[in-house]
Amino acid sequence: MNADYLELTNLTVSFDGFVAVDRVNMSVLPGDLRFLIGPNGAGKTTLIDAVSGLVPATGAARWAGENLVGRKVHRIARLGVGRTFQTATVFEELTVAQNLDIAAGARRGLLTLARRRTSLPEVVVKAMETIGLTDLADALAGTLSHGQKQWLEIGMVLVQDARLIMLDEPVAGMSAEEKDETGRLLQRIAADLTVVVVEHDMDFMRAFATSVTVLHAGKVLAEGSVAQVQADPRVQEVYLGPGEHSKAVAEAVLGEGA
């Protein structure tokens, strides 16, 4: 077992007195495909924002023996933490290969930067195969479909040598087939890495999650396997409580007969 695990201790994020993430304790081990779910405003995205350094937090987020809280975004990234965004952010005016080459190059020296790219690094070639975009290597990223952009972003996180990968709603807006493909891709990746997925798509979560953490009002409500979480009465209450969610959503989370 290596030390590549994420451990949050009393992680708290507050904006002007509003506590978005409230003393969250959570650990994610390598090989895990952890889904973060919860109603809107539960603090899911804020949580990964805090871990990746985008918003200031208190408490501790230990990753591979280092506390990430208080570090700068690019320093955290260099410790092997990668993330994607709800809206895929790729470099639209560069090609798929260039996008990945940049992602792979944060540790490059000045001399390498000053020269032209003559061949693609092996990790980039491998990543293009993994995300299935080899044929589109020379296409501008701006011409990709929505799903392909999400895959490209996942590929960029892979080549940047991230060992902790946090994805923010990777399948939002995807077709059913694209979702399936993304799910299988995530399962392949998660075999070696630590993967955290923020997701609203409950069918997707039930199909591919290894473990689930439910957030509610900034606090961890429940944690465990999909079945355990579904059976948890507190989760049922949050998802069935008055005005919180429609019956359809509740059924999606909790399974038929909820």
Binding site: S52, V73, H74, A77, R78, G82, R83, F85, T89, V90, F91, E92, E93, L94, Q98, N99, D101, I102, A103, G105, A106, R107, R108, T112, L113, A114, R115, R116, R117, M156, Q160
Partner: peptide, 28 residues
């Protein structure tokens, strides 16, 4: 011209179009 065709040039364009993304890849 050298700066434009170099890897630095690609990185600069990347910064222009999506600075946040560049930061999350570990660059300053």
């Amino acid at each position: 011209r050298q700066l434009m065709v170099s890897r630095y040039g690609e990185l600069l364009v990347a910064c222009r179009d999506a600075e946040e993304r560049v930061r999350f890849l570990g660059y300053d």
